[in-house]
């Protein structure tokens, strides 16, 4: 990506084929059969896609595989994409279905967040911080990840989208195709379940 925020789509030999600066432009090119233009969309959304999948399936390999597979499926149907909608919203439907199927199929081998959550933030960031309060927060964070393992996939999903990916209610509503009021009540139920699991010890 260059400093102006545009990106050069590359073909297999990494030769620049065209300057692309918006989703709409990339989608129009893809719909005209330009495979390389799809690189713009993949580059734009790969991290969000990967972390969305990781939050649901809790496995690095599976998140990588499923997020890439969803990109491939989205490309196959790109001609059917309704250009009045956002690309990621449409892509997320495909990714979500793949992840939920993966969870269903691997239920007996359920993963744990302990394999994929970031432990680096558990160190004191600066000396001025209150060490005991920080330690308490770390403990709480650890307990919360364990509690997250026990949530239903849809509850985990809404927590990941709101608190970890920091999306606004409107974005979540668009992605999940539900009204904002439902986002709020689903979030309440998920946080309530999370709170109930750790309340006696930490809150």
């Amino acid at each position: 990506m260059d400093t102006a925020g545009s990106i050069v789509a590359h073909d297999q030999a990494a030769a620049p084929v065209r300057r692309i600066s918006s989703d709409a432009q990339a989608i129009a090119l893809c719909q005209a059969g330009n495979k390389a233009a799809y690189g713009y969309l993949v580059e734009q959304y790969k991290e969000r896609a990967y972390y969305s999948a990781l939050g649901l399936v809790r496995s690095h390999e599976a998140a990588l595989d499923l997020s890439q597979d969803a990109f491939v499926r989205a490309f196959r149907h790109i001609k059917r994409f309704d250009t009045t909608k956002k690309f990621f919203t449409w892509y997320y439907q495909i990714l979500r279905n793949l992840c939920l199927n993966f969870i269903r199929d691997t239920k007996r081998h359920a993963r744990s967040f302990s394999e994929v959550y970031d432990t680096q933030i558990m160190h004191l960031i600066d000396d001025k911080q209150d060490a005991s309060a920080f330690a308490e927060q770390n403990e709480l964070r650890r307990a919360l990840w364990a509690a997250m393992d026990e949530l239903k996939p849809k509850e985990r999903e809404i927590i990941i989208l709101k608190d970890i990916q920091d999306l606004a209610y409107k974005e979540i509503a668009d992605i999940l195709e539900i009204p904002i009021g439902t986002v709020m009540s689903r979030l309440f139920n998920a946080r309530k379940a999370l709170k109930a699991k750790i309340e006696r010890i930490y809150l």
Partner: peptide, 29 residues
């Protein structure tokens, strides 16, 4: 609760994952 959940982060993959990501998708297509 939310003060803490907002500081929770998922582990970042190795940088090579991002470098090869589009190429892998391209190859699959």
């Amino acid at each position: 609760l939310v003060k803490v959940t907002k500081t929770m982060k998922l582990k970042a993959p190795a940088p090579e994952v991002w470098e090869n990501y589009w190429l892998d998708v391209y190859n699959r297509i």
